[in-house]
């Protein structure tokens, strides 16, 4: 591996104005399997590939519910994600307790962004080694945000993070202008198409390794695993068959 003297901690700038520890933490995100998020005018969807450490083990959870109106998908160190999801849940509950309103999604991601920033500035800490896609629905409609270890949060129409996510992003970039008018079902299938592009050679999306999450105007945050994903996977196959014809 490459090595230099500026990459030991998060409190050192390199001569080029980079913080290597943050860059390295971003690499950890790429170690995780891919997740894809995308939104229409009414809904926002997450799809993810789950990994199982061995044939005898269950699959690692990728999508986590935060509140009725919000959920996240994880790529990278899952234990770091749990710290952040706990924090998000606390903040969401606080908003409900104090103001009786669902926490606006943008404020929620800013809160974890600010939390992550501290880890990039102080000696003896490490940046979070996890990337999140945060989806939610609030007064201003559906939202999709990316959270990265640098503490930067950005809002997207569609995005993907994790292993080989570039292929999914290319797919999304080609199609995102059509997303706005799609139904929830179409949106999920569109997401699965992008997600499929991240699969390594010889691996397929199936009901065991696929996870789907969505939320919308009149739809509470829902997570589908196992058999629940089958109808969507069937539709994905149908759509593909149509393409090849």
């Amino acid at each position: 591996m490459f090595r230099n003297q500026y990459d030991n901690d998060a409190s050192t700038w390199s001569p080029q104005g980079c913080i290597f520890q943050v860059d390295y933490a971003s690499e950890a995100v790429k170690q995780g399997t891919a997740v894809v998020g995308l939104k229409s005018k009414t809904h926002v969807v997450l799809v993810a590939v789950k990994r199982s450490p061995s044939e005898l083990a269950s699959y690692q959870k990728k999508i986590i519910r935060i509140d009725d109106h919000m959920g996240i998908a994880v790529a990278g160190l899952t234990s770091d994600a749990r710290v952040l999801s706990n924090y998000l849940r606390t903040e969401a509950m606080r908003s409900k307790m104090v103001y009786g309103r669902a926490l606006p999604v943008g404020r929620a991601v800013s809160a974890i962004g600010d939390k992550a920033q501290t880890n990039t500035q102080e000696y003896g800490r490490r940046p979070y080694g996890v990337g999140l896609l945060v989806i939610g629905h609030d007064d201003t409609g559906p939202h999709l945000y990316e959270f990265s270890p640098s503490g930067i949060v950005s809002e997207y129409y569609g995005y993907s993070i994790g292993a080989r996510s570039q292929s999914a992003r290319t797919n999304l970039e080609r199609n995102f202008e059509r997303f706005e008018e799609l139904s929830l079902q179409e949106l999920v299938v569109q997401g699965l198409r992008a997600l499929r592009d991240t699969m390594p050679q010889g691996k397929q999306l199936d009901s065991m390794n696929t996870s789907i999450g969505f939320v919308g105007m009149d739809t509470k945050m829902t997570i589908l695993d196992g058999d629940g994903t089958q109808p969507y996977l069937d539709q994905l196959d149908e759509a593909e068959a149509m393409d090849t014809e």
Binding site: M97, V98, G100, R101, P104, G106, R107, D138, D139, T140
Partner: peptide, 19 residues
């Protein structure tokens, strides 16, 4: 300052005040 178009409604003000 949040500037995100999500105004605090009357119900929220009431809830906050009550708390």
């Amino acid at each position: 300052d949040m500037d995100d178009g999500q105004a605090l409604g009357t119900k929220s003000v009431y809830k906050c005040l009550s708390n």
